Amino acid sequence: MPPLSPDGPGATPAAVRAPSVVTALRSAGCVFPEDEAELILSTARTPDEAATMVSRRAAGVPLEHVLGWAEFHGLRVTLEPGVFVPRRRTEFLVDEAVALAPGASLVVDLCCGSGAVGAALAAALGGPELHACDIDPAAVRCARRNVAPFDGRVHQGDLFSALPGVLRGRVDLLAANVPYVPTGEVGLLPAEARDHEPLTALDGGADGLDLVRRVAAEGPRWLARGGCLLVETGEHQAAAAVGIFTDAGLTARQAVPEEGWAHVVVGVKP
Rank of each mutant, 00 (worst) to 15 (best):
L167T: 10
E235F: 06
G157C: 03
Y180S: 08
T183Q: 02
R144Y: 00
D151E: 09
V171R: 14
Y180M: 04
V166P: 02
V186G: 01
A193D: 08
L159F: 00
A175R: 01
G169T: 11
G184W: 00
P137K: 10
A193I: 08
A206M: 12
V231A: 11
E197K: 09
G227T: 11
A239I: 00
L223C: 07
R225W: 11
P149Y: 00
V166C: 05
V166M: 08
P128W: 12
N177Q: 06
L223A: 10
V147T: 10
A143T: 08
V171W: 04
E185F: 00
P128T: 10
F160W: 08
E232M: 10
A217L: 08
E129Y: 02
L211Q: 08
A143M: 12
R214Q: 09
G204A: 03
L188E: 10
A143G: 04
A206V: 14
V231N: 09
H155N: 07
E185M: 12
D207N: 01
A217Y: 06
N177H: 09
G243N: 09
A240G: 07
G208K: 05
A193V: 11
L189G: 07
V181H: 00
L229M: 05
L159H: 05
A116M: 07
I135L: 14
L209R: 07
